[in-house]
Simulated assay, not measured.
Amino acid sequence: MTRDQGLALWNAARRLGKGDVIVEIGSHQGRSTVVLGSAARTVGAKVIAVDPFVDGKLFGGSPTRQRFEANITAAGLDDVVELVSGYSTKLRPDWDRPIQLLYIDGKHDYWTYTDDLLWSEYLPPGGEILVHDCFSSIGVTLGTIAKVLFGRRYAYVDRATSLARFQLRKPTSADRLRTLAQLPWFFRNVCIKVLLRLRLRAVARLVGHDSPYDPY
């Protein structure tokens, strides 16, 4: 998560009011949770962090959950952040609490991401949805094309690198054009990822990416 992305999360939480609820899907070790929770505290809002903490090398499992809980405690946010351990796709159908801000940074395949977008049914009209790795992850971008560019429920607003912001409202033609305008940046990111995996970092520098890590 970059500084600009953290600022986008902070500002979104600061736009809420007393008693409002943020749902974060995918918390990992809690960096974004701390940003959201710190901002939420200033306005009297709460954060519900949803993460299954799956065991295994890729996701971290129990040790990651322990680091998450330690980071929340160290930030003094135990009274602001509520952890709900479970799969977002399994929790959603039985959810019964309204929310005012949705942040999606869960599994990045098309099917999970588009299912996570359905958490928006608990948002008020005009509610904001923030999506990490949008126009950077293939699965998330394909889901955005299907549900935002060609959909009727979400309108693209802006992005901080790969952190995109949408509103729960019917998109206008201008909204769709703004979404379409992000696709060249997405194709650039895919090319950079391919170059990095081929160990062609020098070539990636030619398109402005001087880092061993994927563009985020």
Results as ranks from 00 to 15, higher is better:
R169Q: 14
R178G: 00
V190K: 14
L168T: 06
L183C: 01
F186C: 04
R199P: 08
R197K: 10
Y154H: 09
A160T: 11
V194H: 11
T179G: 00
Y156N: 08
A181L: 00
R153K: 10
L168N: 05
D175Q: 08
Q167D: 13
A160H: 11
C191I: 15
G151N: 06
Q182N: 01
P171M: 02
A202C: 08
R165E: 14
R188K: 09
R165V: 14
P184L: 01
L196K: 05
T179K: 00
S173Q: 12
F186Q: 04
T161D: 15
Y154C: 05
S162A: 08
L168R: 11
P171C: 03
N189W: 03
C191W: 15
R188Y: 09
S162Y: 03
L196W: 06
F186S: 04
A164Q: 11
G151L: 03
R199D: 13
A202M: 07
F187T: 07
A181G: 01
A202F: 12
R176E: 02
A202N: 06
R153V: 06
A160S: 15
A202P: 03
R176G: 01
L195S: 02
L198A: 09
Q167R: 15
D175H: 12
P184V: 00
R199E: 11
Y154L: 10
L163Q: 10
L200H: 07
R165T: 15
K193W: 09
R201K: 12
T179Q: 02
R159Y: 06
L196Q: 05
L180M: 00
R169G: 11
R169V: 13
V190L: 15
T161K: 13
F150P: 04
T172Q: 07
A164V: 13
A155Q: 04
V194F: 14
F187S: 03
N189P: 01
Q167P: 07
A202D: 06
R176F: 00
S162H: 02
V148D: 14
N189H: 04
R176H: 01
